[in-house]
């Protein structure tokens, strides 16, 4: 039941992000007559402080969060996995350098570093993706390195070396497929983290700029009207909660599915 619901929510999110543009044409249309109007047949989720329909703004916000989340995860997973693979496989000073770099990044709270970077680079979608990517690759690198260190002593890797395979071939054909499962699980949680981070930075005014909508900026706008129009905060707040919760459930499910030991135990 819960699984089905979470998949349904994620499907809605993806559909809203990919095909919702047509339903959100009026997201920025100001209507002073409908300022802070509660949910009604005119607007299913009500209207904001400028009389704009919250449902349509939520759809635009879905596009923003989807783009940022998948953009950040794509960049960070590729860069992080590659660095982790190289560090674990090559060892020596390259490993030392990458490990030190990872430690330096881990020493900072990620979101604070992202806030500082977004502040320096200025607000905007592209800068938001860059800021979150700079701090997001570390988890993938650490995971990929640890997995590679464990796998590189395996017989099939030694055999590939003996057969004269090149380093890149060994990394991409013999190691990467074996470490892909935990990386995919990590990426799923990464999407959830990026959704929260994007909302957080937009809440602080460092993300999407008005009049464009983002779930974080919608909460920021609504915070001033909590007493009079709680729907302005509840709508984007609950949406973030549901999407992140569903992503975490998906991550857990993937981890269970891709864990060979767990699957084998179930079969036996």
């Amino acid at each position: 039941m819960l699984r089905g619901l979470s998949m349904f929510i994620l499907l809605l999110w993806a559909l809203a992000a990919l095909f919702g543009g047509g339903f959100a044409a009026g997201a920025n249309t100001i209507d002073l007559q409908r300022i802070l109007a509660p949910p009604s047949e005119l607007g299913l989720l009500g209207f904001d402080d400028l009389g704009r329909p919250l449902l349509e703004r939520l759809i635009v916000g879905a596009q923003t969060s989807f783009l940022v989340a998948f953009g950040v995860v794509a960049v960070t997973s590729v860069i992080g996995s590659l660095l982790g693979l190289i560090a674990g496989y090559r060892g020596g000073w390259i490993d030392l350098l990458i490990v030190r770099l990872i430690e330096v990044f881990l020493a900072f709270p990620g979101i604070l570093l992202a806030i500082a970077l977004a502040g320096i680079m200025g607000p905007g979608l592209d800068n938001l993706i860059i800021a979150l990517s700079v701090v997001g690759w570390v988890g993938y690198a650490r995971l990929a390195r640890a997995q590679t260190l464990a796998l590189k002593q395996r017989d099939h890797v030694s055999a590939a070396i003996a057969l004269g395979s090149g380093h890149w071939r060994i990394l991409l054909r013999h190691l990467l497929p074996l470490i892909a499962a935990p990386l995919i699980v990590e990426a799923t949680f990464g999407v959830a983290g990026a959704v929260i981070a994007e909302a957080g930075l937009s809440f602080l005014g460092l993300g999407i700029q008005p009049p464009a909508a983002s779930w974080g900026s919608m909460i920021r706008d609504g915070a001033s009207y909590m007493l009079m129009a709680p729907h302005m905060v509840l709508a984007p707040g609950c949406t973030i909660l549901l999407v992140v919760f569903s992503l975490n459930l998906l991550g857990d499910r993937l981890r269970d599915r891709l864990d060979i030991r767990l699957t084998a135990r179930k079969r036996s």
Partner: peptide, 22 residues
């Protein structure tokens, strides 16, 4: 910012594109 956004939309109605900076 809210007032500026309203003025932006009113000016847009007569063909003036306003870029808001806060």
């Amino acid at each position: 910012i809210r007032l500026a956004t309203i003025i932006q939309s009113q000016l847009q109605a007569v063909g003036i594109e306003l870029d808001l900076r806060s």
